[in-house]
């Protein structure tokens, strides 16, 4: 087992977020330690992306506390999160289509002399970065608009690694990727853990989650619905927590049988 430090690098305590009439997050707790991969799972609309955006400062929280290395911090804008050392790969990628790959990789984080861009250093670093991810991209100087969905996704992932983040958040990073690229991303997640980064991984693919995550946090309808150690929890239990059946497979089966019977009764009538 990987050594995990005592103080979590990032902790959410009772976080709530509301969009108009939608209560997207209610009293959510989450802890991530350095050198740990936490998978965040839940049905569509469970609030996973919203949680990610509260951490990365896109949507400031309404209630609760975000703690960084044990200290409460305010994360009101993306810049705050970046300063702390949070790098995020958003589900919608958040790339600028008109800029080339290099410009996108370093956006907001440019290498420069004074305020003059150092294009050569950026291009060099971009190539190294993309090579370590074994990415096939026609050229680092073509606009991102000219890339395929998978290539764009890999660019977005590479972008999270440009600085030296302490926490890396990946919101469904493998959704548009093929088999080989998915394996690369999972390898990357493991490498990040080995280097002592904390990783939050959102995925719908249970096999991926079980392959790389240490713990799985389940969100359901914007609330916590259990945190499980991957090593001693079965697939079914996690699925049950996601779908909202009570916390083990047996009760879930029972629940299904009873609903089935009520349905058949209803039909009989």
């Amino acid at each position: 087992m990987i050594h995990v430090s005592a103080t979590p690098v990032l902790a959410l305590r009772g976080v709530s977020k509301r969009f108009g009439a939608v209560q997207a997050l209610t009293d959510v707790h989450l802890e991530i330690h350095a050198g740990e991969v936490v998978a965040l799972v839940g049905d569509n609309g469970a609030g996973k992306s919203t949680l990610v955006k509260t951490i990365s400062g896109v949507h400031p929280i309404d209630d609760g506390v975000i703690e960084w290395e044990g200290r409460p911090v305010r994360v009101n804008r993306p810049h705050d999160a970046q300063d702390l050392g949070v790098a995020t790969v958003y589900q919608d990628l958040a790339l600028c289509d008109n800029l080339d790959v290099v410009a996108n990789l370093f956006l907001g984080n440019e290498l420069r002399h004074g305020s003059v861009l150092d294009e050569i250093a950026m291009e060099k670093r971009a190539k190294e970065l993309l090579d370590t991810l074994s990415i096939r991209i026609p050229s680092v100087r073509i606009p991102v608009a000219a890339l395929s969905g998978g290539q764009r996704q890999v660019v977005a992932i590479a972008r999270a690694l440009v600085g030296d983040p302490k926490v890396v958040i990946l919101d469904e990073p493998t959704a548009a990727l093929g088999v080989e690229q998915t394996a690369q991303v999972l390898d990357l997640v493991e490498r990040l853990r080995e280097r002592g980064h904390a990783v939050i991984l959102i995925s719908h693919n249970m096999a991926d989650v079980q392959a790389v995550a240490d713990r799985v946090a389940v969100l359901r309808l914007g609330r916590n619905n259990g945190v499980f150690n991957v090593s001693d929890t079965s697939h079914e239990v996690i699925i049950a927590a996601i779908t909202g059946a009570t916390d083990n497979a047996v009760t879930r089966r029972k629940a299904r049988i009873t609903t089935d019977s009520t349905v058949t009764k209803g039909d009989a009538k």
Binding site: S56, V58, R77, P78, H79, Q82, T88, Y90, A94, L95, C96, D97, N98, L99, A103, L107, G108, N109, E110, R112, S115, V116, L117
Partner: peptide, 22 residues
């Protein structure tokens, strides 16, 4: 050639992405 110029292009291309990039 400057960060400012780069940021102008970024905001023009995708303002939300630019905001999220800090």
């Amino acid at each position: 050639r400057t960060t400012f110029g780069r940021q102008v292009f970024a905001v023009g291309g995708n303002a939300e992405a630019a905001r999220r990039a800090g």
